[in-house]
Design a protein around this nucleic acid. Structure first.
Length: 274
DNA sequence: AACTTTCTCAACCGCTATTAT
DNA sequence: GATAATAGCGGTTGAGAAAGT
C-alpha cells in the first residue's frame, strides 16, 4: 500500500512513509505518548492526531508482535470474545504485543469465518418445544456503560445505591423465573454474568457466589479501582466509567499503557467459561 | 502470461466518553 | 451545569498481495 492523498483540510492521508515513521518515533521518544493533538506539530508531520496515534499504537510502538497468532492466543481471543464481545481493546490488552486492530482483523478474517461455517442457528430457532438449547453460539455484547454513567453522578446519594441494589435483586430473582421479562434490565455486566451463568447453572455454589458478589458490589463503598493512576490524570475519588464495571478476571496482566478496566472485586470467570 | 477473484490488514471515519474550562 | 476540546474505540473501507482460473 503506498497511496496517499490529502484531506479537505490539507492533511496527509493514506500509507505512512519511512520518513514519517521516523519523525513520529522521534517525537514520541522525546515527549512520550499522549497529547496526541500536539504530536503532528511537535513531529512536524502533516497528519491528523488520530492518524499519528493509530500509527504509533498499531505499528511503531515497541514490542508489537507480528505474524500469525499462536494457538493459545486464538484460544484466549475466543474466550474473551465470548465474554466481552467486540471490545477489541480489552481483548488486546490481555494479549501481549497484539493491538486491538490486529485482534479485530484476525477475528474478522479468520475466526468469524470459522464461526460462520459452523452451523449457527438463529436464536429464535434455537429453542425447541421443550425449551432445550441445542448448539448455540451467541456473542455476549456488553452494553455501553450508560447504566453507570447515569448512576455514578449520584453515587453519594445512598438512595440511588439502594435503588440499584433492589433493581439487582429483582434481576436475580427474575433469573430464577425463566419467563421473566428482562426488557428494562440492561446494565452490561448483568448481561455478562447472566450469559456466563448459562454455563454454570448446575453449579449452585457458583450461582450463590454470583449473587453474593452482585449484592456486595452494591454495598461496597464506591471507590476508584485499585489500579488506576499510573500515567492517569484521574484524581482520587473520581470514578471513570472505563474503570468501573469490569470484573477482574484471572487473566494475564494488562499490558502497560493499556487501559485497565478491572473491577476491584475478584471473580474467577475463567471457571465460568469452561 | 494475463486476467479475475479473494484475502489481508493498515488506515480512515464517525461516534461516545472523558476532561478541562 | 453547559460547552468545547481531546482521547479512544469499533466498524468499515480500499489498496495491494496472493491465489485461482
Amino acid at each position: 500500500m503506498n497511496s496517499t492523498s490529502m484531506s479537505s483540510l490539507g492533511v496527509r492521508k493514506g500509507s505512512w512513509t519511512d520518513e514519517e515513521d521516523f519523525l513520529l518515533r522521534k517525537c514520541i521518544d522525546k515527549y512520550g505518548e499522549g497529547k496526541w493533538h500536539l504530536v503532528p506539530i511537535r513531529a512536524g508531520l502533516n497528519r491528523c492526531r488520530k492518524s499519528c496515534r493509530l500509527r504509533w499504537l498499531n505499528y511503531l510502538r515497541p514490542h508489537i508482535k507480528r505474524g500469525d497468532f499462536e494457538q493459545d492466543e486464538v484460544d484466549l481471543i475466543l474466550r474473551l470474545h465470548k465474554l466481552l464481545g467486540n471490545r477489541w481493546s480489552l481483548i488486546a490488552g490481555r494479549l501481549p504485543g497484539r493491538t486491538a486492530n490486529d485482534v479485530k482483523n484476525y477475528w474478522n478474517t479468520n475466526l468469524l469465518r470459522k464461526l460462520n461455517t459452523t452451523k449457527i442457528v438463529p436464536r429464535e430457532k434455537i429453542n425447541n418445544k421443550c425449551g432445550e438449547i441445542s448448539t448455540k453460539i451467541e456473542i455476549i455484547k456488553p452494553q455501553r456503560r450508560k447504566y453507570f454513567s447515569s448512576t455514578m453522578k449520584n453515587v453519594t446519594n445512598n438512595n440511588v445505591i439502594l435503588d440499584e441494589e433492589e433493581h439487582c435483586k429483582e434481576i436475580i430473582s427474575e433469573k430464577q423465573t425463566p419467563d421473566a421479562s428482562m426488557d428494562n434490565v440492561d446494565p452490561w455486566w448483568i448481561n455478562l454474568l447472566e450469559n456466563c451463568n448459562d454455563d454454570i447453572e448446575e453449579d449452585e455454589e457458583v450461582v450463590i457466589n454470583y449473587e453474593k458478589t452482585l449484592t456486595s458490589l452494591l454495598h461496597e463503598e464506591i471507590s476508584p479501582p485499585l489500579n488506576i493512576g499510573e500515567g492517569n490524570s484521574m484524581q482520587q475519588g473520581q470514578i471513570s466509567h472505563e474503570n468501573w464495571g469490569e470484573f477482574s478476571l484471572n487473566l494475564p496482566p494488562m499490558q502497560q499503557g493499556v487501559q485497565n478496566d478491572d473491577f476491584s472485586a475478584e471473580i474467577d470467570l475463567w471457571n465460568l467459561l469452561d
